[in-house]
């Protein structure tokens, strides 16, 4: 990360652009609502003011990024992103139909693959330990209404 990105700062440019896009999106969708008057401000009033502010701030950050040198954004860790976020989504999809008994080991097993230092023994042991811990503490200890066995497993 010590390499500098020439005459511009990619991180600032990307951040500025992101703020501009988000600001414009909020500003656009806010116009579905009523702006109102100062006495009775409508639902669009506050978001519109903020959206304009964010767009302006984003523009300034973007322009500054074009003018001064900064660090490059760098490579994205796709493996980690996919193997951490994916199993998280999968947990949401499986927790009600299957329950903790299957959703937790799936989450642990798949996300453990995100690490390059993963070992088979560590993966199996931690999946087992965390499933038992979750069921014992969350379902029985704290009595949370999260199913141990989901709908499809007869719970």
């Amino acid at each position: 990360m010590s390499r500098t990105g020439g005459q511009s700062s990619p991180r600032d440019i990307a951040a500025g652009a992101l703020f501009v896009v988000i600001g414009c999106a909020f500003g656009w969708f806010a116009q579905d609502h009523d702006l109102g008057t100062p006495n009775r401000m409508g639902p669009a009033f506050f978001p519109t003011v903020l959206a304009v502010m964010l767009t302006m701030l984003g523009t300034v950050i973007l322009v500054q990024g074009l003018r001064r040198a900064g660090e490059p954004i760098g490579r994205w860790p796709w493996r980690a992103i996919l193997l951490v976020l994916g199993p998280g989504i999968l947990f949401g999809l499986t927790i009600r139909p299957l329950g903790m008994i299957a959703a937790v080991p799936l989450l642990v097993g798949l996300s453990a693959l995100a690490s390059r230092q993963v070992t088979a023994a560590g993966l199996i042991l931690s999946a087992l330990a965390l499933t038992l811990f979750s069921i014992a503490v969350f379902a029985y200890g704290l009595g949370l209404p999260i199913p141990v066995f989901g709908r499809l497993l007869g719970g």
Binding site: G88, G92, V108, S111, A112, A114, G122
Partner: peptide, 16 residues
């Protein structure tokens, strides 16, 4: 605890 064992646990706690 090695991080490769710690972060799946963090994920479980976050999700639950």
């Amino acid at each position: 605890i090695p991080y490769r064992l710690l972060y799946p646990a963090i994920l479980v706690f976050c999700c639950v």
